[in-house]
Simulated assay, not measured.
Amino acid sequence: MQRRDMVLAATVAALWGFNFVVIDWGMVGVPPLLFVAIRFSVVALAAFVVPRPRTSWRTVVGVGLFMSLGQFGLLYTSMALGLQPGLAALVLQAQAVFTILTAAAVLRERPTVPQIIGVGLGIVGLAIVAAGRGGDAPALAVALALAAAFSWGIGNVISRRAGAVSGAGRLGSLSLTVWSAIVVPVPALALSFAVEGSDAIIAGIAAFGWHSALSTLYTAVLCTIVGYSIWNGLLARNPSAAVVPWVLLAPVVAMASAALLLGQIPAPAEIVGGVLLVGGVLVTGLRFRRREATPPAPVTEALAVVPAPAASAATATPRRS
């Protein structure tokens, strides 16, 4: 990765890390699946001014289902069940492992030794942070967060494959982010009726105040449109194994934000784990910067397998959030 791409990846990780606190703050009184439907309805409005991406509808639907609906529907529900923002950010970073494994199987992208070391350091850091937080998190909430990470990983690979085949640039990444959001609102609202019930939806709409509106704007504009557009662009220009470890910085930002705004002071183990996370990202990123003499070879159509979901979309992911 070039230095510019490394800075962009770190910026996206910061946006997504703070996103967890914003979601927790704005979702009070609003059912999680309804909140997801509202978020992506706002994102989808940009389709009136953003051209359709130069890729197949199967890719657009895939990114929308996995990177947006799957990831955030499961994540929001896990947080509504009691998973704290910092721990939610931590568990979601299992997407890095899921993405690299899926990319190796589908796109035949083989991670190098330095990449494996960097991801390994990040995983160790995640484990230390998890141990430091204790075992009071609801098991179902943690399981749903892991499922969200898996959905995000699949979305990352779909986005990477689409960018490598079509050569999508910055505008193509924005188009994919916005147009994949169109896939989300109706299924999310249908799931909300089926899972949460009409009474909860009516009560949620009544509870949707200024704090929920600000949270929606942050998640929709900064995390989805801006964040996932950058993320999808990074995936289109770089191998998945070089990009996804940068999201390991998001839990550090989430925990720092939770400490400052929610009074959730990190334990010593969380600080040590956060240092390992940053170290793992630096090991992976610096190695790719030195190797950037020639760009990665594009993935051919013959190697592409299109399942379906970013970030937030499409979002280039590996959002947020």
Rank of each mutant, 00 (worst) to 15 (best):
V63P: 05
A302W: 04
L174Q: 04
P32L: 11
Y228Q: 13
R160L: 10
A236P: 03
S56I: 04
V157Q: 00
G17I: 09
S198H: 07
A88W: 02
E109F: 04
L222G: 06
M67Q: 07
M6A: 15
R108V: 15
V36Q: 03
L45E: 03
V63A: 02
P32G: 08
I123R: 04
A188V: 13
D136Y: 00
P85T: 09
N238I: 08
A188G: 10
L248Y: 06
V119G: 01
P318A: 15
A207V: 12
P138W: 10
G135W: 08
A148E: 01
A316V: 05
A105P: 06
G132N: 09
A316E: 05
S173Y: 02
V253T: 08
F72S: 02
G209M: 09
L107T: 01
V165D: 00
D199M: 12
G204M: 03
L45K: 08
L92P: 05
A13R: 00
G273I: 05
A207R: 08
S192W: 00
E301I: 12
R4Y: 11
L249A: 15
F40W: 07
L222S: 12
G26C: 08
Y76H: 11
A258F: 03
S312K: 00
G197A: 15
V49L: 14
A89H: 02
T317W: 02
P114R: 11
I158F: 04
A236E: 00
A96T: 13
F48D: 08
V243K: 05
G86K: 08
V12K: 12
A139W: 04
M67H: 07
F18Q: 01
V30E: 07
W246F: 14
G125P: 02
N232F: 06
L101K: 04
R52A: 15
L81T: 07
A308F: 09
L171E: 00
V49P: 07
L69D: 00
P268V: 12
I100Y: 01
Q95C: 11
V157M: 00
G209P: 12
L81Y: 06
T284G: 12
A96R: 04
A310E: 02
V142D: 05
A314F: 06
R54K: 15
F150H: 07
L217A: 15
W246A: 10
L87K: 09
